[in-house]
């Protein structure tokens, strides 16, 4: 199939950036990134600079890939990262617009590559359990209800890709942050520091330039790991408790 691409090109953070048009010959079995590889090989053979994009595992788990495809972070398929999207979901002659994950807190580095270190800073603010190596009691010392462990796991599957931020008109990082808060806060070992964790992570989120949450819900729709928006409600309750004291 022949595809008409409109790809975002931006030399660096200071450059204004613009779209560049290209046509590419693809097959249905290619992944979206392999289609981009074909484009890049084409550009290199013309001695031009290839399109910079971020990718690594190419199996939907590392969270590196981040393209907005026809207006949607990670493209049209639900629960799918860019690297797992295959070209069989497109048709001959389609036009495809490709942009980076845009947000005030994710400055563009080059073309489709953005800087997502703000996510690391949120985790550094408290997204952990303070236990040193060697201090741990036996793994079975605290039984944890199966369903609770499952719920915690569901939140912990967040891959830190940033699609939630890119999808949100306010550029809020609430889904990402609340997923971490839920992952740790649901477990007995994470409860101890829960209140402090919520306060520090939410404050850092604001400091890093992410926007407010106004319950639009676009994050949940675009999240490739289908992280539930319920986590946000839970975190809000905890945040209020941390600010005004008392119990949740």
């Amino acid at each position: 199939m022949k595809l008409n691409l409109k790809v975002w090109r931006q030399k660096n953070n200071k450059d204004e950036g613009r779209y560049e048009a290209h046509t590419v010959e693809a097959t249905g079995d290619m992944s979206f990134l392999e289609m981009m590889d074909v484009l890049n090989e084409q550009l290199i053979s013309e001695k031009k600079e290839p399109v910079a994009f971020e990718h690594d595992c190419r199996e939907g788990i590392c969270g590196s890939c981040n393209m907005v495809i026809n207006g949607k972070p990670h493209g049209p398929q639900q629960g799918t990262t860019t690297c797992q999207l295959h070209m069989r979901h497109f048709n001959d002659g389609d036009s495809i617009a490709i942009e980076p994950f845009r947000s005030a807190a994710f400055p563009v580095i080059k073309d489709l590559v953005v800087d997502r270190s703000a996510f690391d800073h949120i985790i550094q603010a408290g997204g952990y359990i303070s236990v040193n190596t060697g201090q741990a009691p036996d793994g079975n010392a605290i039984p944890i209800e199966k369903d609770l462990a499952g719920q915690s796991f569901d939140a912990a599957t967040c891959i830190g890709c940033g699609a939630c931020v890119a999808a949100c008109p306010n550029g809020s990082a609430m889904l990402f942050t609340s997923a971490k808060v839920a992952h740790l806060g649901l477990l007995p070992q994470g409860k101890v520091e829960h209140t402090k964790r919520v306060k520090n992570m939410v404050d850092t989120m604001d400091k890093e330039g992410f926007g407010m949450c106004s319950n639009i819900g676009a994050c949940e729709v675009e999240c490739p790991k289908e992280i539930s928006i319920e986590n946000i409600a839970m975190m809000n309750r905890s945040y209020l408790a941390s600010v005004f004291g008392g119990r949740e």
Partner: peptide, 19 residues
């Protein structure tokens, strides 16, 4: 295993709550 459980790694569990 002990270390990872203490860090909050959500390992699979049995109905009785054990690993």
């Amino acid at each position: 295993i002990d270390q990872c459980v203490a860090q909050g790694v959500p390992f699979a569990r049995e109905y009785g709550g054990l690993l």
